[in-house]
């Protein structure tokens, strides 16, 4: 049995609703969701992707990227192709802005092929080759500017279009949730897209012809 004078929920409510000014103030609390909705706070979470021009520098968080062109080829020296598959590549210039090397094929969410290009792997590149040496890039060292070809294998694009849309996701250097002390580039909701013109595959990454 609660004693008279004790503070109960009922007593608090009676206190808050005791006078008209207090009732008016309390009703304003009910208007808070209305105000938030009017300001646009309940809008969709992902902002729409922004278009960038090829040849211009884009800061995607992990990289400064200059997208150049795309190509389709069957003779790139990056592994074997199945029957009916071909390589689709994007020529870009990338500079790692972080403090640690980024393994471009393993844990990098930045570059994505458009969804309408059939690709049985992940949307991130299958392989990345350096244009200057023709070898795998492996890890992009911080501060070094590389000209690379991002490669995917596809069964489509038999008749390559004049333009291909490459998506570049904005990424942030975030700490792991599970273990403290580790960081990784994680994709945020922001993204850029660029219409790449069709070009030629760089000669340095093509298979050498057997004499």
């Amino acid at each position: 049995m609660t004693e008279p004078g004790a503070i109960t929920a009922r007593a608090m409510l009676a206190f808050l609703l005791a006078t008209w000014p207090r009732r008016v103030v309390l009703s304003l609390v009910l208007l808070v969701p209305v105000v938030v909705a009017a300001v646009g706070g309940f809008g969709p979470a992902d902002p729409p992707p922004r278009e960038v021009e090829p040849g211009t520098v884009t800061d995607t968080g992990a990289y400064r990227v200059v997208p150049r062109s795309f190509f389709v080829s069957e003779t790139v020296d990056a592994g074997s192709l199945e029957e009916g598959e071909r390589w689709v590549g994007a020529r870009v210039q990338i500079t790692n802005q972080g403090t640690q090397p980024i393994s471009v094929t393993f844990d990098d969410p930045t570059f994505e092929l458009p969804a309408d290009v059939p690709n049985d792997g992940s949307p991130n590149p299958y392989e990345v080759l350096r244009v200057d040496t023709g070898a795998r890039l492996g890890s992009a060292q911080p501060g070094v500017t590389y000209e690379v070809a991002l490669l995917w294998r596809t069964t489509g694009l038999q008749d390559p279009p004049a333009e291909l849309t490459l998506t570049m996701n904005q990424s942030a250097w975030t700490e792991w949730n599970i273990e403290a002390g580790y960081h990784t580039w994680r994709a945020t909701a922001d993204a850029f897209y660029v219409h790449l013109p069709r070009g030629e595959a760089p000669a340095s990454i093509l298979e050498e012809e057997d004499e």
Binding site: T99, Q100, P101, G134, R136, G138, S139, Q141, P142, G143
Partner: peptide, 12 residues
């Protein structure tokens, strides 16, 4: 000096 790390490059 800035604390950046450089690891072994590939392809050499």
């Amino acid at each position: 000096e800035a604390g950046r790390e450089f690891s072994e490059p590939s392809g050499f």
